[in-house]
Amino acid sequence: MDLRIFTEPQQGASYDTLLTVAKATEDLGFDAFFRSDHYLAMGSADGLPGPTDAWITLAGLARETRRIRLGTLMTAGTFRLPGVLAIQVAQVDQMSGGRIELGLGAGWFEQEHTAYGIPFPKEKFGRLEEQLAIVTGVWSTPAGETFSYDGTHYQLTDSPALPKPAQARVPVLIGGHGATRTPRLAATYADEFNMPFASVEDTERQFARVRAAAQEAGRAPNALVYSNALVVCVGKDDAEVARRAAAIGREVDELKTNGLAGSPAEVVDRLGRYAATGSSRVYLQMLDLDDLDHLELISAQIQSQLS
């Protein structure tokens, strides 16, 4: 099972903090560094020193890392026009030497839109479907040809469909709990389906829906990667687990129910239950970005048992 590090910088992190975590991610042998795409802190966090932009961050990290893959869970479709997003992601992929992955979602946090003057359309899912069609269409248009699209929400006319990513295909991630439209979109556009913050049972049900949708769309269900995103809180002993839980404002029992928490052995066992659903990749949501000892413990005592 691949372990990837997933950060939430809107809760309070500078670019330098993110760079430190990304370099530790690379040095400790993790597969990838991902970040959320939000502009406003959630809950009781003050968000200081203020938000960082996902794709500007990844552009910087693309030049300052060498091995790890880089991406978003999930880029908010409401933040960027699809033609512009296709350019941004292709450019950052070139800057990274072909290590970028695009997680794309509809956008959902209305308060951050009003805080920064970003339109928050009522109909977001239809826009997301058109965005996926445009971004993937721009990238897949052969060099020298143009791309046009006439949709309800977006229209492109004779786009040169440039630049192209370094990769022949940038992996596209789609995720969510929706029972019908989300599996259909994943079956149509995704290379990976991600189930965020869900129980083993809910994961199994949703993966089955995506596999069925892929079959209906004429794709082999196993052509997609299936993954989870889960908060992580590991300690060498109960006291260390409790300290790390307190540092992120959570309760140990709740984290054990809804995430990956406890001793390394407990977490390895729980990861095995997710693996049994078909999940081959887990994004470890790290909420305390100053606790690099946490990353080292996970690398040494959990990741080493999964390779």
Rank of each mutant, 00 (worst) to 15 (best):
227 S>K: 07
208 A>K: 05
194 N>C: 14
245 A>S: 07
199 S>H: 07
194 N>F: 00
233 C>L: 10
203 T>Q: 09
208 A>P: 03
213 A>M: 03
224 L>F: 02
242 A>Y: 05
191 D>T: 11
220 A>G: 15
252 V>N: 08
210 V>K: 01
194 N>Q: 11
241 V>R: 00
239 A>W: 04
208 A>G: 01
215 Q>G: 09
235 G>P: 02
195 M>D: 06
207 F>A: 04
217 A>N: 09
210 V>W: 00
242 A>D: 11
257 T>G: 10
214 A>Y: 02
198 A>G: 11
195 M>F: 10
241 V>P: 03
248 I>E: 04
234 V>G: 02
229 A>R: 12
214 A>D: 00
243 R>P: 04
195 M>R: 08
231 V>Q: 12
232 V>S: 00
199 S>C: 10
199 S>D: 09
236 K>W: 11
226 Y>H: 05
252 V>I: 08
218 G>F: 10
241 V>H: 06
204 E>D: 15
242 A>Q: 13
253 D>R: 13
224 L>I: 09
208 A>N: 01
217 A>Q: 06
226 Y>C: 09
255 L>N: 03
222 N>A: 15
224 L>H: 00
219 R>C: 01
251 E>N: 13
207 F>T: 07
209 R>D: 12
245 A>G: 01
197 F>R: 13
255 L>M: 14
200 V>P: 07
239 A>M: 07
194 N>R: 09
200 V>Y: 03
248 I>A: 00
228 N>Q: 14
197 F>C: 12
242 A>K: 12
257 T>W: 12
197 F>T: 12
197 F>S: 14
238 D>K: 12
241 V>Y: 01
209 R>V: 08
238 D>G: 11
253 D>I: 09
257 T>M: 15
244 R>A: 08
209 R>F: 11
226 Y>M: 06
217 A>E: 04
199 S>L: 09
233 C>Y: 00
236 K>F: 11
209 R>W: 11
222 N>K: 13
192 E>N: 03
254 E>D: 15
202 D>K: 15
253 D>K: 13
250 R>A: 13
251 E>F: 06
248 I>D: 00
226 Y>V: 01
251 E>L: 09
206 Q>I: 09
225 V>F: 03
257 T>Y: 12
216 E>Q: 15
225 V>E: 12
250 R>F: 05
223 A>P: 01
204 E>W: 10
217 A>R: 08
209 R>K: 15
218 G>W: 12
243 R>A: 14
257 T>Q: 15
237 D>H: 05
191 D>Q: 05
223 A>K: 04
243 R>N: 11
193 F>M: 02
198 A>K: 09
212 A>S: 13
242 A>S: 11
246 A>S: 13
232 V>Y: 02
196 P>I: 05
212 A>G: 06
256 K>C: 06
217 A>V: 02
208 A>W: 03
249 G>R: 04
214 A>F: 02
243 R>G: 06
213 A>S: 03
216 E>W: 05
206 Q>T: 14
231 V>P: 01
252 V>S: 02
224 L>T: 04
223 A>R: 04
242 A>M: 07
196 P>N: 03
243 R>H: 10
250 R>I: 02
221 P>I: 07
238 D>C: 06
250 R>V: 03
218 G>R: 07
215 Q>N: 11
252 V>K: 01
201 E>H: 12
226 Y>A: 04
205 R>Q: 15
249 G>N: 03
193 F>T: 00
192 E>V: 13
255 L>G: 05
204 E>K: 15
205 R>S: 12
